[in-house]
Nucleic acid binder design. Structure first.
Lengths: 246, 246
DNA sequence: CAGGCACGTTGCATGTTACGCACTTTGAGC
DNA sequence: GCTCAAAGTGCGTAACATGCAACGTGCCTG
C-alpha cells in the first residue's frame, strides 16, 4: 500500500464534497500545508481538481471524463436499453437501471417518462441499499453470503416515515421480494415517490442489475404501480436472456 | 509535485480506457509489476478501481460517485434547468447544457425531446471544441486571449465531411457566431445531427456555458432549426440574468 | 496609506517510505 | 500432473515525500 496515494485519494474525496482550501485539506490530512499544496498541484496538473478564483479547489475535468468513461464501460447499459424503452412505452413512467458495482448499487441508465413532471437525473449516483427500488431489486436476489457481506456494517438510515430501519423486518421484506419476483420501494427513500423493481441475471445466474419503474404517488396509485409488475419482470427476463441467463 | 501521485493518476486514466492487467500497467508506467500492484491495491481499497474475475482492473464505485458529485457541484445546472425546459417545450427538441470547466467543455445537463428517437445520454462527456454546438457556443464568446490559450495546441480533427479543420476558417466561423449571437454545428460532429447553441454569461460578463438545441436532420431541416434561434437566445439570456449578467 | 495577518508558494535537508529485486504462490491450459 | 504466466510477498536501500523556514501576495483595518 502507498501512503502518499492513500492521502491523495482522501483529498479527492474531501474535495468532492464541496470546494476546499489548502488549509482545510492540510488539517484534514494532518499534514503540513506545503504537503497539501503539492498534492493539489499534482492533481491539478492532471485535471483531477481545478482551482477556483478564491483559491479553493473542486473536482476538475478529468473527474468528469473518467466518471463518464466508467459509465460507458458498463455493457449492461446498452444491452438493457431496448427493453427499458419498451417498458417505458408500456408504463408511461421513468425506468431506471441499477448496476451492482463492487459492493455498491449505482443508477447507470434512465429512460424518462413522457410526463411534464420528470425525475431529476441521478445517473452515476449510489443507490441506498435498504430503501431504493433498484438496490432492493438487486440485494434481495443475491446469494445469502454475498448479501450478508454487502450489508455487513451497513446502517439502515431513516429517509422517510416509511423507511424500513429494522434489520429483521428488512430481511423479511427481501424474502417477500424473492417470492414475488420483484421488490417495492413504498415511499421508503423519498416521500411521494414509489417504485417497483426486478433483477437482471447474468449467464452465470448471478444478479448484476435491476430495472425499476418509478413514479410520483400523485400520478400513479399503488395498485396501478403494482399492475406494471408483469411487464417489468418480462423486460428484465428479456435482458437477462440476452446476457446468457436461463 | 509528487511522482508517486503522478504515476497513480496515470493508472486511473489508463484503466479508464478499458480494463487493464497488472502487467499492462507496469509496462505503461515503466515500473516493476510489484509497484503497479501496490498502486492498484491502494486504489482498490478506496474504491477507485475494482478487480474483475479475470484479474483485470477497471474503474470502481468511487469514480462513479465522484463523477456524480462533480456534476452535482455545478450550480449552473439547476439555474439553467427551468429555461432549458421551456426551450424544449417551444422547440420540441433536445436541449443540452455545456459548461466550461478549466479548459474543457462538458455536457452537464440535458432535457430530452418528446420524440421516439432520442439522443443517447452523454452527460459528463467532453465536447469537442471545434465541432460541437455547445463548445462552439462557448469558445466563440471567450475573450481572444482565453480562446487562444484554450486552442493552443488543439488539433482540429475531421469527424465528418462537414467538419471545419482549417484554423483560419474556424476562426471565421467563430467570428460569424459572435455576430449572429449563436453558433451552429452543421453536421460537423456527427452525420445527420445538427444543432444551434448560444452562450450563458456570468455576473462578471464571462461566458460560463451554453445551451444547444439538437436534432436529427431527418426530422428538422436547417431552416426550422435556425428558426429556433430567437427562443434559444432568449433562454440563455434569462439564465445569464439569473447569474447576475447585464 | 501603512501595517498586520492569513494564506499561498518556494527551496532545502533529512529521514521515511516507495521502489526494484528475488522468491513464492496461484490459477489456467494442456 | 506439469508448465508457465501472472499475481503476490518480504526485504534492503536510496530516492523522493515531507516538514520547516522564509518569502510573496492580497485583503482588511486603523
Amino acid at each position: 500500500m502507498s501512503q502518499t496515494l492513500d492521502r491523495a485519494l482522501q483529498v479527492l474525496e474531501f474535495v468532492g464534497e464541496r470546494p476546499r482550501r489548502i488549509g482545510d485539506i492540510a488539517t484534514r490530512l494532518d499534514v503540513h500545508h506545503s504537503t497539501a499544496l503539492r498534492f493539489l498541484h499534482t492533481l491539478r496538473k492532471h485535471g483531477f481538481v481545478q482551482e477556483l478564483p478564491d483559491h479553493s479547489y473542486r473536482l476538475g475535468p478529468t473527474m468528469f471524463r473518467l466518471g463518464y468513461q466508467a459509465l460507458e464501460g458498463i455493457e449492461l447499459r446498452s444491452v438493457a436499453r431496448p427493453a427499458m424503452e419498451r417498458l417505458r412505452e408500456l408504463t408511461g413512467e421513468t425506468v431506471h437501471l441499477g448496476s451492482l458495482e463492487d459492493g455498491s448499487v449505482l443508477y447507470v441508465e434512465k429512460v424518462e417518462a413522457n410526463h411534464p413532471v420528470r425525475m431529476h437525473s441521478r445517473i452515476g449516483a449510489v443507490a441506498r441499499l435498504h430503501c431504493t427500488g433498484v438496490a432492493k431489486g438487486i440485494v434481495a436476489f443475491l446469494p445469502q453470503a454475498d448479501r450478508d457481506e454487502l450489508l455487513d456494517g451497513y446502517e439502515l438510515v431513516r429517509m422517510t416515515d416509511h423507511t424500513i430501519v429494522d434489520r429483521v423486518a428488512f430481511e423479511e421484506e427481501l424474502a417477500l421480494s424473492r417470492e414475488r419476483g420483484y421488490a417495492l420501494d413504498a415511499e421508503e427513500n423519498e416521500p411521494g415517490i414509489h417504485c417497483i423493481s426486478a433483477p437482471v441475471f447474468s449467464g452465470e445466474g448471478r444478479v448484476v442489475g435491476a430495472f425499476s419503474v418509478t413514479a410520483p404517488t400523485s400520478r400513479v396509485d399503488r395498485q396501478t404501480l403494482l399492475g406494471f409488475a408483469p411487464a417489468l419482470v418480462e423486460a428484465t427476463r428479456d435482458t437477462s436472456r440476452q446476457l446468457g441467463w436461463q
